[in-house]
């Protein structure tokens, strides 16, 4: 099940915990992967670990020119982009009263605008192929909100609404567009929390543990598969029961 042999996948934020997990899962299912991110060191390491069928394409998602070029570079490296996983994201947490316009704009630019640009950039090839999978990684806070994250939560809710609209536009061409919404996942991003914060979060998770990158990767792998061809415009929440949406 979930055989991606012959498919080419572009994964952004592949230098991070979740992105790396997603790239590993798609690669293990047979896909060729293009690993994108700003830090090439971890990307090269991951590519070396994966061996064949792995390409590294650096991209700064806050730079519009670099974002426009990414789908083309990925298609040149792999022959096509059949699967796009928009996983990259940044946070600039701050209480709304103290949040600068810059912190707001940066998060919207990288998390929402670059996600849209990458979707637009891969559509031509997918439309011609009459097959495509776009999976946008959003967040539980896009649905629930979170103090200190007005910018991040807005960007992630925006990604969900964008995914649904795009899903409706391209469904007739065999292209699905879905979102995966992680809850609290053990990564470098959540390592920064102190024990008290972690304890408080843990109390809200019925499953009693943080998620692993592999939990998210499995959801992405499903949505990327031929078997998920009738699923579009959906948001798959992977959060240990933290929010039952």
């Amino acid at each position: 099940m979930f055989d991606l042999t012959g498919k080419a996948a572009l994964v952004t934020g592949a230098s991070g915990g979740i992105g790396g997990g997603i790239a590993r899962a798609l690669h293990a299912a047979g896909a060729t992967v293009a690993l994108s991110g700003t830090r090439t060191g971890p990307l090269e390491e991951l590519a070396a670990e994966l061996g064949s069928r792995a390409h590294v394409i650096a991209c700064n998602l806050s730079d519009a020119v670099s974002v426009e070029a990414l789908p083309k570079l990925a298609a040149e490296a792999m022959g096509s982009v059949d699967i796009l996983v928009n996983n990259a994201g940044i946070t600039r947490d701050q209480l709304a009263m103290r949040m600068s316009d810059e912190d707001w704009a940066q998060v919207i630019d990288v998390n929402l605008t670059s996600t849209f640009r990458l979707c637009r950039g891969v559509l031509r090839g997918m439309m011609k192929a009459r097959w495509g999978r776009i999976i946008n990684v959003t967040s539980i806070v896009g649905a629930t909100g979170n103090p200190g994250q007005t910018n991040y939560a807005a960007s992630k809710a925006g990604v969900v609404a964008m995914s649904k609209s795009l899903a409706a536009e391209v469904a007739s061409r065999g292209i699905t567009v879905n979102a995966v919404a992680p809850g609290f996942i053990a990564t470098a991003m959540t390592d920064k929390l102190n024990d008290e914060q972690k304890g408080r979060i843990m109390g809200q998770i019925p499953m009693g543990r943080m998620g692993e990158p592999g939990d998210i990767a499995a959801a992405v792998l499903y949505l990327a598969s031929p078997e998920a061809g009738y699923v579009t415009g959906a948001t798959l929440h992977v959060n240990g029961g933290m929010a039952m949406l």
């Binding site: 031509r124 439309m127 007739s172």
Partner: peptide, 11 residues
């Protein structure tokens, strides 16, 4: 044609 068809025709 629908609107997406017209985009594809132009392509």
């Amino acid at each position: 044609a629908d609107s997406l068809d017209t985009v594809e025709l132009v392509m």
